[in-house]
């Protein structure tokens, strides 16, 4: 019973975190700190930052990874599931609502023009994300080669995206091995 109550608390806390943060990822950090560290005392500031580090180098959405981790630490597997369901629930509700409302207005000329304008801005925002990520990710010549190679392969060949990512990971390991031997 204790566990069930804990799972309820986890669900509600992460529902709040999911519903009140825009953007996800790092944007979630302040909400997470207030809810999980200050209000509930489920973990310390340091643990939150460690979780972020793990969340960034494991597959999946960072918000979900963090929720699973906190939930698991508090109440085992069921706790992990409760926190994860909590953090995604607001998205499911809000997006389904917005999508169903938008369907009724999508044929109006003003809405079509607005969406065309938004598309251009989205491209600019995304381009900016690519530049920021490239600046952080490309730290040497090999990084630049991987960036160029990845872009060309994705744009001009039918090689699956997942395969490109796996190959990049393998290249990273091989390069570090070779580089490591040289320095030792």
């Amino acid at each position: 019973m204790m566990n069930l109550q804990k799972c309820g608390e986890l669900y509600i806390s992460f529902f709040k975190i999911g519903g009140l943060t825009f953007g996800g990822g790092l944007a979630m950090l302040p909400m997470l700190q207030r809810e999980v560290v200050t209000e509930r005392g489920w973990c310390t500031e340091e643990e939150i930052l460690d979780m972020y580090a793990i969340g960034q180098c494991t597959p999946g959405i960072i918000a979900v990874n963090t929720a699973t981790y906190v939930g698991y630490r508090q109440a085992g597997f069921i706790g992990g599931v409760s926190a994860t369901l909590g953090v995604v629930s607001p998205s499911v509700i809000i997006i389904c609502l917005v999508a169903s409302i938008l369907q009724n207005f999508i044929h109006l000329p003003a809405v079509l023009h607005a969406l065309a304008g938004i598309r251009i801005i989205v491209c600019a925002l995304m381009m900016n994300t690519v530049v920021t990520m490239a600046k952080k990710g490309i730290i040497d010549k090999l990084g630049a080669v991987l960036f160029a190679g990845g872009f060309i392969l994705a744009c001009f060949t039918p090689i699956p995206t997942a395969l490109i990512i796996v190959a990049a990971g393998i290249i990273g390991v091989i390069a570090k091995r070779i580089g490591g031997k040289k320095t030792s």
Binding site: C57, I138, K176
Partner: peptide, 22 residues
Amino acid sequence: KAVFYGIRPTVAALIGYAVWEL
């Protein structure tokens, strides 16, 4: 760390591909 050293620039490139299509 080595895996992510390879993956980070590649993920940026793949998002770049999606932007190109958009």
